[in-house]
């Protein structure tokens, strides 16, 4: 299912952040959402997932042809969009196993269903820590759990907000490898990321947010990687 964002204006009570954002994510596509700090990446992610604040003041979002602009977050999840939130936000007072089993599963899905056992196969480290309280997990383990928890909803689109934040390089390699492993499973992925190298490694396509609250550039990841002027202008690299 594809995501279509059209003329999206999003803001908070005190400030408008996005001023007309347009983009599409197709099936099986991995898209990186890049931009310097404070450009509105998390605001856009929250708006798509139905998390309020912020408020969508104009424009629209459709997913699989369904208008989700005014849907609540649980309805959007049930339509097949899952979030791996910034800062992981695992349920600290639940065990690893409970964090996964507490998630309601979509009934009608295409492809192989995600189960607790499949998540444990995908992240064997979580199987080893299944009885541990989530708050006692390391940052990397919590990130694996946040991804596993999102997969348990059996999404068609996985949105990850800053998945590399605060992780050691060795853990990043594992996360990177696992996200790569999701390719070809019918899952589309949107990765909002500060780590440009990681994002470009994982993504097919890139969209950039700048301080005008719009998308001044979008294109293929390998195209951006070789364009030093673009990297300098929008990402200060």
């Amino acid at each position: 299912m594809s995501l279509n964002v059209t003329g999206l204006h999003v803001g908070y009570a005190t400030a408008q952040v996005l001023h007309g954002v347009d983009f599409t994510i197709g099936e099986n596509e991995t898209v990186a959402l890049l931009g310097r700090n404070g450009m509105g990446k998390t605001t856009l992610v929250r708006a798509i997932c139905g998390l309020r604040p912020p408020t969508i003041t104009a424009g629209g979002i459709t997913f699989g042809g369904v208008d989700i602009t005014k849907r609540s977050s649980h309805q959007i999840s049930r339509l097949g969009i899952a979030i791996v939130p910034q800062g992981r936000r695992v349920f600290g007072s639940l065990t690893t196993l409970e964090n996964l089993s507490v998630i309601p599963q979509r009934k009608e899905i295409a492809g192989e269903r995600w189960t607790v056992e499949r998540v444990f196969e995908f992240f064997p480290r979580l199987a080893e820590r299944q009885s541990s309280m989530a708050r006692s997990l390391s940052g990397g383990e919590q990130q694996m759990l946040a991804i596993g928890r999102a997969l348990m909803t059996n999404p068609s689109l996985l949105i990850m907000d800053e998945p590399s934040e605060g992780l050691a390089p060795s853990v990043l390699d594992v996360i990177h490898d696992r996200i790569e492993g999701l390719r070809g499973t019918g899952l589309s992925t949107l990765i909002a990321e500060q780590n440009v190298d990681l994002a470009l490694d994982m993504a097919d396509r890139v969209i950039i947010l700048d301080d005008s609250g719009t998308i001044p550039w979008s294109g293929r990841a390998d195209e951006l990687r070789t364009d030093a002027a673009l990297l300098e202008r929008y990402l200060s690299i």
């Binding site: 997932c49 139905g50 998390l51 609540s72 977050s73 649980h74 959007i76 999840s77 049930r78 899952a82 979030i83 939130p85 936000r89 349920f91 600290g92 007072s93 639940l94 507490v102 998630i103 309601p104 979509r106 928890r149 999102a150 348990m152 909803t153």
Partner: peptide, 11 residues
Amino acid sequence: DDREIISAMGV
């Protein structure tokens, strides 16, 4: 623990 995220997970 986090009512916003449990809602975003479909509850």
